[in-house]
């Protein structure tokens, strides 16, 4: 089914000399980290929805206790520090991997893991306490929003801890290779991102709640 080629005058374009590769970074590392960045953007929106839900329901206590009655800023401060230092430890692990110092990498990862696990433990203690006092998520829209927002963040941290553990094994067995470095970089993006979200949680949920 061939047809004669027909030339129309609008079609005589100047051939452009620009034939460079349109994106200079097409290697697997760049595409993977970029793709993960895009995933983090979707996570931003997920958290944003939970944040705005919290904002809409923050005063819907249904006659129950308000934030002032429930939150303890000392605990929140400790959680903030723990998570922040865990984030830095993760960064130090990456820096050690640049120098191919496998043992140091695993040590810093372990530090990040322990700090992250402490964060989850403290948060679980806070949640259990609230539930035992009768202030569980079933009490009001405010408490539902609180547990969902803070709980989702905690769940992300927990998944991150599992991932971190798997990464520690991989680094132990495979050493620092292009593959494990790529995976470590992606993990560190995730871990820093969670600390970023926590900034907004301690500000909007806890600090503003106490004002």
């Amino acid at each position: 089914m061939s047809r004669p080629l027909t030339l129309h005058h609008q079609d005589t374009l100047e051939a452009h000399p620009d034939t460079r590769v349109p994106d200079p970074h097409q290697d697997v590392f760049s595409t993977t980290t970029f793709g993960f960045w895009v995933y983090l953007m979707t996570d931003c929106l997920l958290f944003a929805t939970f944040f705005v839900t919290f904002a809409v329901f923050h005063d819907r206590t249904f006659g129950g206790p308000s934030p002032k009655d429930l939150f303890d800023l000392k605990t929140v401060f400790i959680e903030t520090m723990v998570l922040l230092f865990s984030s830095v430890a993760c960064g130090l692990a990456l820096l050690s991997s640049l120098k191919l110092e496998k043992t140091k990498v695993i040590i810093w990862m372990a530090v990040a893991f322990l700090l992250g696990a402490s964060f989850v433990a403290i948060e679980l203690k806070e949640f259990t306490h609230l539930v035992h006092e009768g202030n569980s998520w079933e009490r009001s829209a405010f408490l539902s929003s609180f547990f969902t927002l803070v709980g989702t963040h905690g769940l992300h941290v927990s998944v991150g801890l599992l991932w971190l553990m798997v990464m520690m094994f991989q680094v132990f067995w495979m050493g620092i290779t292009a593959l494990t470095f790529r995976r470590l970089s992606v993990f560190s993006m995730f871990w820093h991102f969670l600390d970023l979200i926590w900034i907004f949680i301690f500000t909007f949920v806890y600090l503003m709640g106490m004002v």
Partner: peptide
């Protein structure tokens, strides 16, 4: 895609 070695990737790292 043609792939990079570990050293080449690590040059991308900004930390």
């Amino acid at each position: 895609s043609t792939d990079l070695t570990l050293k080449e990737i690590q040059k991308e790292w900004h930390g």
